[in-house]
Nucleic acid binder design. Structure first.
Lengths: 263, 263
DNA sequence: GTCAACATGAAAATCGATTTTATTGCGCGT
DNA sequence: ACGCGCAATAAAATCGATTTTCATGTTGAC
């Protein structure tokens, strides 16, 4: 036996820890709305859901809480950050500001590799956009990733890792609102051409036009998402999508809000 | 025994978890340069240093890593983020952008409470500035906190939690560079009047002037910190300030770089 | 009838042991 | 002698048990 049976050279880099995979899954589940806003995240439930121990879950929770998707109160656990219209507007304003700067810098500094990266990112996204049209799939993880990559590629030449990181964080935050809205609207609004127009302007190095289109794009997302917030308000908060583990005592009828964080 | 011996009603709100205190201490120690850049952070050593268990340390490390002060590689542990001139310039550029926007918004929106908060923050900082003049104290934690609070207060009326959070993160990152520089220069550069001038312009609602002064302030920090980077470069990297726990085998002489992260 | 102290149960937080993984030094074959 | 594979060691990562803390519902005194 000449050993070496463990690691295929192909996946050599894929040595992820359980905590990291838990982080990815948790972040995705929060953004995609599996855990509705203000849901209390019980460590034990997450353990059984993801089939891993306490420590990695706890580690993952700490990371998402620094992403702003989850709030943490000492001795009182974690809960999904609430959604409010003010927060949505804050996010949109911030990402407009940050992306405008980053995009202008990118257009000024971008080289050929940058242009090609945008082109590739767009086409990968566009290719996924067709087959995924069926609206019964609640979330197309692949397209979402490609979408994120596309937006990052636009500003990737701004020469600021901090700014890029900030934009990505805001992207995730805004995405959560978009997903929440989609849960109602079922079926994707067709906005692929917005992306194409943005890309065209960027590659044309028309900074003003590109910025204009990009900000419009963000504001359209805002408008689209905002419609849902009012509807969400007043809805009884509930646990994760799959029914919460049966309580020994089914909550008495006079408890309209279940599993809500004390504030 | 009528119990109730545990908690004084005074410190009722101070129910911090060990992980949170570890986070604070760790962040402070990294920013203040106790752990030099690129130091490998061994969990066990941190456990003994802070006298707490693995889990809280690990939790704290995850949080600081999301703050950008520490890098994490799966299965390979944590290490203090390296310092580079490019990173320092990135940070400065980013905080100039972010703070300009935030400050203009603040000046436009700020109410009386905002003005008074600035005033108070300044005076608290100024009061600490006098007695702390002795240069033998490596770090005056109280003044540093007040300094941070002052800068945050300036932009606190910008109506964007995201933007404020971003600015604070950048503040910490820049502060680490400033501390590293101070370790050499011993003795504080007297820049208190810069803060006063900024405050005056802000309270006068002279946005252009305030922005000008604030950005100059940041750039002065950049200039001040940059001087040290070249000097740091080439210096043998070493462990925490207190001598590294004695190795059974003292490293052979041909190993110039000790405890360095593989990259 | 109202309020406060108390008991009870649930969840978070912490710890220490165990498992997994990476790194380093050594021996062997070429 | 040089490179390659293997063993030994150190560190990270994970798990499960235990301790602390909070929330809830109840009882008793005023």
């Amino acid at each position: 036996m000449t050993a070496r049976s463990k690691k295929q050279p192909a996946e050599r880099t894929g040595a992820e820890s359980l905590a990291s995979t838990a982080y990815e899954r948790l972040r995705f589940d929060i953004i995609s709305g599996v855990f509705p806003p203000e849901t209390k995240l019980l460590i034990r439930e997450l353990c059984t859901r993801y089939a891993i121990g306490l420590s990695p879950i706890r580690e993952a929770l700490n990371r998402v809480s620094r992403d702003g998707l989850v709030e943490h109160h000492d001795q009182r656990g974690f809960s999904v950050t609430a959604v409010t219209e003010a927060d949505l507007e804050d996010i949109t304003k911030s990402r407009c500001w940050a992306n405008e700067f980053a995009l202008r810098e990118s257009i000024a500094n971008g080289d050929q590799a940058w242009e090609e990266a945008i082109l590739i990112a767009y086409h990968r996204m566009a290719r996924l956009s067709g087959p995924a049209e069926q609206s019964d799939a609640p979330v197309d993880a692949a397209w979402e990733r490609a979408h994120r990559t596309f937006h990052t590629s636009l500003i990737s030449a701004c020469n600021s890792k901090w700014l890029i990181g900030f934009c990505e964080q805001l992207f995730d935050a805004a995405d959560r609102y978009r997903f929440l809205a989609r849960l109602q609207f079922r079926g994707r609004t067709q906005r692929q051409n917005e992306h194409r127009d943005i890309m065209d302007a960027v590659l044309r190095r028309d900074a003003d036009q590109a910025v204009q289109l990009l900000l419009d794009h963000f504001r359209a997302t805002l408008k689209y998402s905002r419609l849902e917030i009012d509807r969400l308000r007043g809805l009884p908060k509930q646990g994760p999508v799959e029914p919460a583990h049966s309580r020994k005592k089914p909550a008495p009828d006079n408890a309209p809000r279940a599993r809500r964080m004390a504030r």
